[in-house]
């Protein structure tokens, strides 16, 4: 029961990170007339290390990013 309450942290962090990364990257206004699109399709924990002051977790993230031209704004 205690374990179930704790396990959510990592899951939440991974999901939060994936969502937030996609959110920040998707439609990110790079410059006038340009936008970015992202799709993250791979999320994994590659390594976990415990140090004297905390935990290091290496997450592998894979996906595709792209920069496209969007609507033209007349100057």
């Amino acid at each position: 029961m205690i374990q179930e309450n704790i396990n959510f942290y990592l899951t939440l962090n991974l999901n939060d990170t994936k969502k937030e990364l996609e959110k920040q990257l998707n439609e990110y206004p790079l410059a006038t007339g340009f936008r970015m699109k992202s799709k993250i399709d791979q999320l994994s924990v590659d390594n976990i290390q415990i140090t004297s002051d905390g935990i290091l977790i290496d997450m592998g993230i894979g996906g595709n990013l792209g920069i496209f031209t969007s609507t033209v704004q007349k100057k």
């Binding site: 990170t17 002051d53 905390g54 290091l56 977790i57 592998g60 993230i61 996906g63 595709n64």
Partner: peptide, 17 residues
Amino acid sequence: SQRTILVLRTKLPFSET
């Protein structure tokens, strides 16, 4: 390559855990 592969290191201090 068209694909993006990144390894994101998360630092989680014991104070936060």
